[in-house]
Design a protein around this nucleic acid. Structure first.
Lengths: 344, 344
DNA sequence: ATGAAAACTGAAAACGTTTTCATAAAGCTA
DNA sequence: TAGCTTTATGAAAACGTTTTCAGTTTTCAT
C-alpha cells in the first residue's frame, strides 16, 4: 500500500543555496524591496518559480508580525444581506492584498466568543464583526483593541466599545419610513413583529415605528407588538394570534423579510387578502420578497455600500495606527431606502 | 493625539518566568500532554488565564507544521446550496478542533488560482473545493497533493485528479428524474436550459435528460437545448426564444432554480399558464422555489449530507496519511430527490 | 532499602522567515 | 585620487512555539 509522504517543501534557503546567495537577499528579492540588484532579483524569482517555492505564511507572519489576514465573524453567511456584504468585503480586501477569514457564529454567543479566541490566536491584522442577536457583553472583543488590532462592527453593533468603529444602517429611519408608508397607504391598525430588544437593530427599528405612529396620532396596540427571534415559525404564530382576536390589524411591519413572507403566506391561507385587507412591509430586500406574490414592500440596506465602507475603514486602520480620538466616536450610518411593491 | 500602540503580548516564556518553569513545561501543560504534574498544569493554566495569554498560532504552526485550519474555495457563498454546505462543514469541523477558511472564487478561474496560492502559503491542513464553472485545468491543485495535503472536491469536480477525493450529487439521475417527471405528467415537447458543458454538473444533468427522453421515445429538439451561464437574464432570453417560434414547448427543465424562476416569471408575463401550458422543473431546491406561485418542482441535493460527508473524508485524510490506493478512485455519490410542487 | 521503571522537567535546537547590523563594492564629487 | 554616499550583500539574531534529548525525581515492586 503506497502512502504519500508530506514531501519536503522548498524554502528560501534552498533558493539561496542554489544561487549561492544568502537567505536575506532572497527574502529581499522576493519581497520587492530596494537594495537588491535587478539581475539578482530576476535570478531569485526565476529560481523560486523553478523550485515551486511558496512563502511559508506562518514563518513570515511570525517574524514580521503581519498576517495579511482579516477576520470576519458573522451570524450566518446564508442571510442575503450578510452574503452580499461579505462578497464585497472580500473582493475589496483582495485589492489591497489582504485575505479574509470568514467565520459563522450561528447567532450563538458562546460560538462567537470561541471564534474571537481563534481569530486572535491566528493574529488577524483586523477584525470585522456582525454580532449575535444576543450579544450584550462585548468584553471578548477587548483583547483586539488592547493589542491595537483594528476592530469594526457592522449591522449588529455594540452600544459603545471604545476604540472600535461602528458601521450600521439607519434603522430608526427605516422603521420610521416603513410605518409612515403603511399609514400613508391608509393603515390605521398597525402591528409590528420585531426582534429581541437586546439587539440594536430592533431597538432602532421599533423606535422608528413608534415615532411614526405617534407623529401621525396613532396609538400602538401593545398586544400587536412582538419581540421574538425572527424565524418563519414565530412569525406565523404571531400572525395567527394577530388574526385570532376581535379586532384585526390592517397593516403589518416586520423587522425582516422571512417574517414578512411567513406572515403573507399565513394570511393567504386564512383568506386575508394582501394588500386589500392587510398591507405588509418587510426589511432587507431579500430576493424572495420580489418573487412572492404579491411582491413585498421592503427596506433596502445597500449591502455593497456597507461592505465598501467597512473595507475603507479597515484599510485605514491598518495603515495608520489607530487614532483613539477619532475612531469609535461617531458611528457611520449607511442610508436605507423604501422599496415599494404591491403588498402595500 | 493619543495613539494606541500594539502592546506586547504575553508569551509562554512570561508564564514560565512567572512560575519559575521552563517554556517546554508550560507548552506541555497547555497542550494537555502527558508527563506534566497535575499541580504544575493547574498553575500554568491559571497563570495563563491571569496573564491573558493566547497561543500564537503562527509560532505554533511553524514549529509543529500543523495549522488546524482547513481551506475552502467555493464559487459564491450566496448560493443557497453552498451556503448550507459551508455551514455544515464549519460546524462539524469545529467539533474536531479544526477551523475553516472560507474563500470565494466568484466563478473566476484566475481568482481560484490565486486563492490556491494563498491557502497553500497559509499551509492549510486540508483543502475543500467546489470549482469554478470554467475550471478545466486542475494543475493549480497539484501542489496540495504533492505536499500530502488532503484535497476534496465537491459539487463541481474534476474528471480525475489522482489522489483527490470527489464528492458529488447524482446529477445524471437528477437530470433523468426531472425529465422523466415532465414526461410522466404529460409533456412531449420538452426544452432544457443547461449550464456550460465544461462543468460536470451540466454534462451529467444533460446526459440524464437525454437518456430519459430517449427511453420514452421522445426526440430532443436541439434548438430547445441551451448551454449558457445560468443567470436570470440568460434564462429569460432563452424562454423568450422558446416561445418566439411556431411550435412552443410544453415542458422546461432548467439546471438551476434561478433559471426556473426567471422562466416562470417570463411565462407569466406573456400569458403562458404554468403548469397548464408549460410545466417547469428546476434544480437545487432553492428556498425561493417554494415561495413563488406556483411553487416550482425541483431537485433536492441534501447539502447537509454533502457537508457531513466532506468533513468525514477530510478528518479521515487528516488522521491517517492519505492512502493513494483508496483515495480518489471512486467518487462518492450523494443521492438526490425530486420535490414535487405545483409547477408540474 | 534497593533498583528499575515511570513520571517529570529543563536546555537547546528547530521551524522558515524578516530584519538589523556590519561590511564590501560601486558610484560620485571635488 | 581621496573621501563620501549609495547600493548590494551576508551573518546572525529574532519571532514564539514544539520537540528532542538528557537528566532528575518519584513510584513501585521486590
Amino acid at each position: 500500500m503506497v502512502r504519500i509522504k508530506r514531501t519536503q517543501q522548498n524554502t528560501i534557503l534552498d533558493i539561496a543555496k542554489e544561487l549561492k546567495l544568502s537567505a536575506a537577499t532572497v527574502s529581499r528579492a522576493l519581497n520587492g524591496q530596494i537594495h537588491v540588484k535587478e539581475k539578482t532579483r530576476n535570478d531569485v524569482v526565476k529560481m523560486a518559480e523553478k523550485l515551486g517555492y511558496r512563502r511559508n505564511q506562518m514563518a513570515s507572519g511570525l517574524r514580521s508580525n503581519k498576517t495579511y489576514t482579516v477576520g470576519l465573524i458573522v451570524p450566518r453567511i446564508s442571510m442575503f444581506f450578510h452574503a452580499e456584504v461579505i462578497t464585497t468585503i472580500q473582493n475589496n480586501l483582495h485589492k489591497h492584498g489582504y485575505n479574509l477569514m470568514i467565520c459563522q457564529s450561528n447567532d450563538d454567543v458562546v460560538m462567537e466568543k470561541k471564534l474571537t479566541e481563534i481569530l486572535y490566536a491566528s493574529r488577524v491584522d483586523a477584525l470585522i464583526v456582525a454580532c449575535t442577536l444576543f450579544t450584550v457583553d462585548f468584553s471578548h472583543f477587548h483583547k483586539f483593541l488592547e493589542s491595537g488590532v483594528p476592530l469594526v462592527f457592522y449591522d449588529r453593533v455594540p452600544q459603545d466599545v471604545d476604540g472600535a468603529t461602528v458601521i450600521r444602517g439607519d434603522d430608526e429611519r427605516g422603521g420610521y419610513l416603513a410605518a409612515s408608508h403603511l399609514i400613508e397607504t391608509g393603515c390605521r391598525r398597525i402591528a409590528h413583529i420585531s426582534g429581541p430588544l437586546s439587539c440594536n437593530l430592533y431597538r432602532d427599528r421599533s423606535a422608528g415605528f413608534y415615532s411614526a405612529m405617534e407623529q401621525h396620532g396613532l396609538v400602538v396596540n401593545e398586544e400587536w407588538v412582538f419581540h421574538q427571534e425572527l424565524t418563519s415559525e414565530n412569525a406565523r404564530e404571531a400572525t395567527r394570534r394577530l388574526f385570532g382576536g376581535k379586532t384585526v390589524p390592517d397593516g403589518l411591519f416586520t423587522d425582516n423579510d422571512s417574517s414578512a413572507i411567513a406572515a403573507l403566506e399565513y394570511a393567504r391561507e386564512i383568506g386575508v387578502n394582501v394588500p386589500k385587507d392587510l398591507k405588509i412591509i418587510g426589511y432587507s430586500n431579500d430576493p424572495r420578497t420580489a418573487i412572492i406574490s404579491p411582491p413585498i414592500t421592503t427596506i433596502e440596506q445597500f449591502p455593497n455600500l456597507v461592505g465598501r465602507k467597512i473595507v475603507e475603514v479597515v484599510i485605514d486602520g491598518l495603515k495608520n495606527e489607530i487614532d483613539i480620538d477619532e475612531a469609535g466616536v461617531l458611528p457611520i450610518i449607511i442610508p436605507i431606502e423604501l422599496i415599494r411593491r404591491t403588498s402595500t
